[in-house]
Amino acid sequence: MTNIHRIADIVDGYVVQPEETFSLNDVVGKRDKARGFVEAPMILNNRFVNDIGGGVSQFATTMFNAVFFGGFQDVQHRAHQYYITRYPAGRESTVSYPQPDFHWRNDSPYGVLIKTSYTATSVTVQFWSTKRYDIESQSSERYNVKSVPTLTDSGAECIPMDGAEGFAIDVWRIFKQNGKVVRKQRFHTVYDPEPRLTCKK
Rank of each mutant, 00 (worst) to 15 (best):
K33Q: 14
E141H: 12
V16I: 15
F175N: 07
I84S: 11
E19M: 10
D170C: 06
V181L: 03
T21G: 05
S140Q: 10
I159Q: 03
T124S: 02
S122V: 00
N46L: 12
V145N: 02
P41W: 13
Q138K: 14
Q76Y: 11
G54Y: 10
K201V: 08
T130I: 13
A66M: 07
W128Q: 15
G166D: 01
G179S: 00
G155H: 05
V38W: 09
A66N: 05
M42S: 01
A79R: 12
V49H: 11
A164H: 13
K131M: 12
H77F: 09
N106V: 04
I10M: 09
I52D: 10
A89W: 05
T119N: 10
G13E: 00
S122T: 13
K184C: 11
P109N: 14
S117K: 07
K201D: 09
H188R: 01
P88W: 11
D134T: 14
T119H: 04
S154A: 07
Q126M: 06
G166F: 12
G70H: 13
T152Y: 02
Q73V: 04
G163F: 12
K30E: 12
F175L: 09
G163Y: 07
R31M: 06
K30W: 04
T2E: 13
V125P: 06
G53A: 09
M63G: 04
A164I: 06
E157Q: 09
